[in-house]
Amino acid sequence: MSEVRLYSKADFSECRLTNHPLYSYIQVFFSQELSELVENSTNGTCYALEVGQKLCLVVVAQFQEGQTYPTSLRAQYLDYAQEELALTGIKGKRLLSGAFQLLKRIVPKTIDEVVYVGNYLLSTNLFQPFTTEELQKIEALLQRRFPTKTIVYRSQNSCLNQQLMENLSALNYQSFISRQVFIAHQSQVIQQKKTFKKDRKLAKDTTFNIRTNFDVTNYSERIIELYTQLYISKYSQINPRYTPAFIEAMKTVQNTSFTGVFDEENLIGVTMSWELDGTLTVPILGYDLSYPKESGIYRLLTYYTLLRVNDEQLFHMSSGVGPFKLSRGAEYFPEYIYYKRPASAKERRLSFWLLQKVNTILTRMSNKRAY
């Protein structure tokens, strides 16, 4: 029978699962203040959750202005979603935009009073499966420790988390769509795509150098500069603002690796990949936007990651640029958060009703097309 324990920074040394693939990752978040690793996450406190032989990071958050969406449901659903909406060509987006504006005024700030289970301060979180019994024990422990907090499991999709989603539903957790994600899991399909063959030719002919063994510490500020160009300056201020300290800490984390595209000695493109139980994702990606699109830096970074897809490993490509990812053999899946509000929750009925209506509309839209 699985025992459940919650560790703080002060007593994590008592955890004996030192060989667990997430142990070194969790150590990173106990080694420094959260805001020193993720600049726009000053509203969270990290814990480690041990469930039998499983281990994950837990983040306890509260409302604070200007936070990144991994630690703020308001940022994710009332700010980030509206920004994403503006980039799409979907019908009815003006009506939806108005709904988001209304929700910003009436949804209470207490929606950000959350305990996130398995939240790694990344856009995409990877999960080990929890049984119904384990989920019940986790819930009981968290409700005792944080009785006023909503319990949230982010990053759930039917490709990777079908059983976990069913177990959460059986325990009366509610689902709320968060985004579309793209998963490449069939190497034979991927390698037969015309785009893959074109990318392979690009990799053969390019004058850039691809390096998987370079001094990450020496390039940590440049890595953040490239990531910031793409994800902060181009896309959204609500994306996590990682710091060079985060990059330097991650270079020693188990199952984490860096790939760099170099123009002579100038780093012009980079990925940091992270793997858990056969699933690979790329939480850090950036490239020099001053280079022309024809130089193919993003294509090269994607190609070298897709090469790692085989019968034992798949590539969770996260969200965004759907047509590009679909053309390279990925499939798209709606992604959800699962949540359970505390018994003491007293959000206004109108705001909760509106959130559910928006959820229904977004789910229908996601089922119709990839974007």
Rank of each mutant, 00 (worst) to 15 (best):
A343F: 04
V60L: 11
G269P: 07
L96N: 09
L230D: 14
T71S: 04
R154G: 01
C46A: 15
L122E: 08
K104W: 11
Q76D: 05
L362H: 09
S319T: 00
G92F: 00
Q191V: 09
E134T: 03
T256A: 15
K204V: 13
K340L: 13
E347F: 15
V189G: 06
N359I: 02
R328M: 11
Q136A: 08
L87R: 07
F262G: 06
I111P: 02
L354G: 03
K325L: 11
R241M: 13
S257T: 12
G44V: 04
F176A: 04
E50S: 12
P292D: 02
Q162Y: 13
S13H: 15
D288Y: 09
W353Y: 10
L314D: 00
L267W: 04
P334Q: 05
L280C: 12
D277Q: 10
P342G: 14
T150G: 00
L122T: 02
T124L: 03
D263A: 12
D215T: 08
Y336L: 00
Q62K: 07
E248H: 06
F30P: 13
A343E: 09
T271K: 06
T363W: 09
N359A: 00
E312L: 04
S351D: 13
S236H: 03
Y304D: 03
Q53C: 12
R369W: 07
L362K: 00
L164G: 00
V309Y: 04
T228D: 13
Y227A: 05
S97G: 14
A86P: 00
I337C: 04
D79A: 06
T18V: 15
S273V: 03
L57M: 14
L289Y: 01
E264D: 12
M365D: 14
S344M: 08
Q192P: 07
Q186P: 02
F352S: 09
L141Q: 09
Q229C: 02
L202W: 14
R348I: 11
T217Y: 01
A61K: 07
P292T: 00
N359G: 01
I232E: 06
Q313A: 04
V152W: 08
T132S: 11
H316V: 03
D311N: 12
N310T: 14
L164S: 03
R241H: 14
A61H: 02
Y303A: 10
I210A: 03
Q356S: 15
E83V: 10
K54E: 07
V261L: 05
R105A: 05
T207G: 13
T206C: 10
V189I: 07
T279H: 12
R145A: 12
E312W: 11
